[in-house]
Computed example of a mutant assay.
Amino acid sequence: MAQKTKYSMVKEQITQWITSGKVKPGEKIYSENELVKMFGVSRHTIRQAVGDLVHEGWLYREQGAGTFCSQPPSQDSPQIHPSQSIKNGKNIGVITTYISDYIFPSIIRGIESVLTAEGYTLTLACTNNDVELEKQCLQTMLSRNIDGLIVEPTRSSNYNPNIHYYLELEQNNIPYLMINQYYSQLQPPHIVMNDELGGFIATEHLIKLGHERIIGLFKTDDAQGVNRMQGFIRAFREHGLPFFPEMVISYTTEEMDTVLLEKVKQFFVSTEFPTAIVCYNDQLALQAVNILRDLGKNVPEDVSIVGYDDSFLAQASDIKLTTITHPKMKMGIDAANWIVSAVEKTGDRANSIVYEPELVVRNSTTSLIHDKKV
Rank of each mutant, 00 (worst) to 15 (best):
D302R: 03
S352Y: 02
A335L: 06
Y251T: 08
S250Q: 08
L284G: 06
Y355W: 05
L260H: 03
T322P: 01
Y355Q: 00
K345R: 13
I333H: 06
A235I: 06
D309H: 06
T325N: 04
I305L: 04
K345G: 02
M331L: 15
K265A: 09
R293V: 01
E262C: 03
E272K: 13
A336P: 07
E254Y: 12
G332Q: 05
L286I: 12
V354T: 14
E246A: 12
M329A: 09
V343M: 11
E272Y: 04
K330F: 05
N281L: 02
E238C: 10
A336Y: 04
Y280W: 05
K320D: 01
K330M: 13
K345A: 11
D310V: 00
A316N: 11
T325E: 08
D310P: 00
P300M: 05
F267W: 11
E344P: 05
G240L: 07
K265Q: 10
R237M: 14
P327Q: 03
K263F: 05
E301Q: 13
P245S: 07
M247P: 02
Y280F: 14
L292C: 12
A350R: 14
H239S: 12
R237A: 15
F236G: 07
A314D: 01
T258M: 10
V248F: 02
D302H: 08
S270T: 14
F236V: 08
K297P: 01
G332T: 03
I249H: 02
G296F: 09
V289F: 06
K265G: 07
Q287Y: 10
V259W: 05
L261Q: 11
N351D: 10
S311C: 03
E254F: 11
A235V: 08
F243P: 01
A342E: 07
G296P: 10
Q287D: 10
E255M: 14
S317Q: 10
P242R: 00
E262Q: 13
F268Q: 02
D282H: 03
L295F: 15
K328F: 04
